[in-house]
């Protein structure tokens, strides 16, 4: 579903990836680790096709960096759910409207939007807060709303960039549990994180590490 094939990528004065190859299949749960500045966020942005490789190709579902046309990029992004460290909720609208936004953008009918948003809010555990504004919520609640927004469109893959970066350990684990339950229902999940505690606790999950401009598979020993 997501394939990196011989990917080379550089910023104007810094080479980030050199011959990166990996594949993520439907329904997988993958942790992506690496030191700061190694390119975790860059890799996620390449999946979103905000960035394109200098050499090689990235394929996400039926879209490929070498052949995708500009008007197709929004269509690709509707198949990916994104969760951010800083939540990126819009402060000019309440929880319901934040979560409903991707559905509006996909042209879904209002009657269905209401049903779908309430279901998802219930699933992530913030149904009671649907009328609240983002600033009225705790960090953990905001991240749950952000996850609800990411999954409301039933994406093929959910990408989380440091989703626990701004949260305390207990809430962090709750968020990871939520991502696991989403994955359990069939959505592939890719989590870029610095939180090695969580990675160690979930050692059965696939782990990829960015090191020396390459992506490696890592197996943690018991």
């Amino acid at each position: 579903m997501i394939t990196f094939n011989k990917v080379h990528f550089s910023y104007p004065k810094k080479e980030i990836f050199k011959d990166v190859n990996f594949k993520i299949d439907k329904g997988e749960f993958v942790f992506l680790i690496g030191e700061s500045g190694t390119g975790k966020t860059t890799l996620l942005r390449m999946i979103n096709m905000e960035l394109v490789p200098r050499i090689g190709e990235v394929t996400v579902a039926e879209f490929n960096t070498n052949s995708i046309k500009k008007p197709e990029i929004p269509l690709l992004r509707r198949k990916i759910g994104f969760v951010f460290q800083d939540f990126k909720l819009l402060n000019d609208r309440n929880v319901f409207d934040n979560v409903a936004l991707p559905l509006y953008l996909s042209g879904v009918k209002p009657a269905y939007i209401k049903k779908k948003v309430f279901n998802v809010l219930n699933e992530v555990g913030v149904f009671d807060s649907y009328r609240k504004m983002p600033e009225e919520l705790s960090g953990g609640e905001q991240q749950r709303v952000s996850i609800a927004r990411a999954i409301v469109n039933e994406p093929l893959v959910l990408i989380a960039d440091e989703p626990t970066g701004n949260l305390d350990p207990f809430v962090s684990f709750e968020i990871i549990k939520l991502l696991l339950s989403i994955n359990y229902k069939g959505t592939a999940v890719l989590v870029a994180t610095h939180n090695y505690e969580i990675v160690k606790k979930l050692r059965s999950k696939r782990l990829m590490q960015i090191k020396d401009k390459k992506v490696f598979e890592v197996v943690l020993k018991d």
């Binding site: 979103n48 905000e50 008007p71 929004p74 269509l75 690709l76 992004r77 509707r78 994104f82 990126k88 819009l90 000019d92 936004l101 991707p102 953008l105 996909s106 927004r149 469109n153």
Partner: peptide
Amino acid sequence: KNTIELMKLIGASKET
């Protein structure tokens, strides 16, 4: 700016 950036990331077309 943040609203525009988020809109881009969640699949809004330029027109939208």
